[in-house]
């Protein structure tokens, strides 16, 4: 018994000390990645209210689009296969006034820490794996991805126009725009993401002369028209939205 007492006395403080130290230490550390969220802001181009497009003076009364969902991915080229798990996302599509000169928050991106390198997104029309046909989101202006209303003037020539443009995902489960590179940024460092849209560049791709020859007023640009297709190409290729991460530094 005396032996046991000795052993117990000698072991007890050490055991308690070790347990306490480790218990305190147990709460330290985490599993690496962290949850993050940052605002998604959109900004148009005030210049788009009135601009020159190959001799035509374009004046916009309305320029809206629906943007989203947006996925920010770790891979170099975001796609359905290479972005099964996204770094961050904004699931809800939001309407954007392209004539607004100031940034406006259109959603909150939720995700996890880690580098974002590319993005894929829709313009208010989604075609998920479970949707039999492309589906228009409530935020889509007039049920389309984009809607422009305005006037085109060149000298004495003048006509009004209404343009409805759809950017459709190519197939079920795909986004309308995939593989859009963004500046590599750790989501943990992102304080905001600003997406810029340049309607001027898009509308400049339209063959306004051809529209004038239609002798309609207003000219109705339908989603399957050449003019709409020119806008789609501009959005997807020549003048895609810009992505700019705002960090801690000004």
């Amino acid at each position: 018994m005396k032996t046991f007492n000795r052993v117990a006395r000698s072991l007890m403080p050490a055991a308690l000390g070790l347990a306490l130290a480790l218990a305190l230490g147990a709460g330290c550390g985490d599993t690496g990645q962290q949850r993050v969220e940052f605002p998604l802001r959109a900004v148009g181009n005030a210049r788009a209210a009135s601009f020159d497009a190959f001799g035509w003076q374009i004046t916009l009364d309305r320029a809206e689009l629906s943007f989203g969902p947006l996925y920010l991915c770790a891979s170099e080229g975001a796609s359905a296969e290479l972005c099964a798990t996204a770094r961050a996302e904004v699931l809800a599509a939001a309407r954007v006034d392209l004539l607004a000169a100031r940034e406006r928050e259109i959603g909150i991106a939720h995700g996890t820490s880690g580098t974002m390198r590319s993005a894929m997104y829709d313009f208010g029309i989604t075609w998920t794996t479970t949707q039999p046909v492309p589906t228009v989101q409530p935020s889509a202006p007039g049920g389309h991805s984009l809607r422009f209303e305005g006037r085109a003037t060149r000298g004495a020539q003048r006509f009004a126009f209404v343009a409805d443009v759809d950017l459709l995902p190519p197939a079920r489960g795909f986004r309308a725009v995939q593989g859009r590179r963004v500046d590599a940024t750790d989501a943990l460092d992102a304080r905001a993401l600003v997406v810029g849209f340049d309607a001027t560049a898009w509308l400049s791709q339209i063959d306004w002369d051809a529209l004038a020859q239609l002798a309609q007023d207003p000219v109705v640009i339908t989603p399957d028209s050449k003019a709409a297709n020119a806008i789609v190409i501009a959005i997807a290729a020549s003048a895609p939205p810009t992505f700019r991460f705002l960090g801690d530094t000004p």
Partner: peptide, 19 residues
Amino acid sequence: PDNPDPPFQQGQLLPQVPP
């Protein structure tokens, strides 16, 4: 390819392991 540089912090805990 879908995660070229998985985030990692020295000393990060292993998931699922109860201390």
